[in-house]
């Protein structure tokens, strides 16, 4: 099974991944096969399962109070940035 090249282009655009024409061909085929696997779910009768997200957790509900306790990590955080200036991340100009 293969999916449409245009669909792969659309997904890649949504995921912000640049693909070459060769990549698109390869991923169309492979993602098609993965969707083939996922389509097995169509056999399962889920009519009686409530539409709310199924709770997969093991009983956690550990809410913490919503208070600011720390901060001022600007220097620490920017140490890992590829580029920064005057306490900010820098990128190419976004607004003309």
């Amino acid at each position: 099974m293969s999916i449409d090249n245009n669909l792969v282009k659309k997904i890649a655009n949504l995921a912000r991944i640049e693909l070459s024409e060769d990549d698109i061909k390869m991923f169309s085929k492979q993602i098609g096969e993965i969707i083939g696997l996922m389509n097995q779910l169509n056999e399962v009768d889920i009519a009686d399962i409530p539409s709310l997200d199924a709770d997969s957790s093991n009983g956690h509900s550990n809410r913490t109070e919503d208070i600011v306790k720390d901060g001022n990590y600007i220097e620490l955080i920017l140490q890992n940035a590829p580029e920064s200036k005057e306490g900010f991340f820098t990128v190419k100009k976004v607004i003309e």
């Binding site: 995921a15 993965i34 969707i35």
Partner: peptide, 9 residues
């Protein structure tokens, strides 16, 4: 990349 794209889909 494959998994990100499948997830996005």
């Amino acid at each position: 990349k494959r998994r990100i794209m499948v997830g996005t889909y």
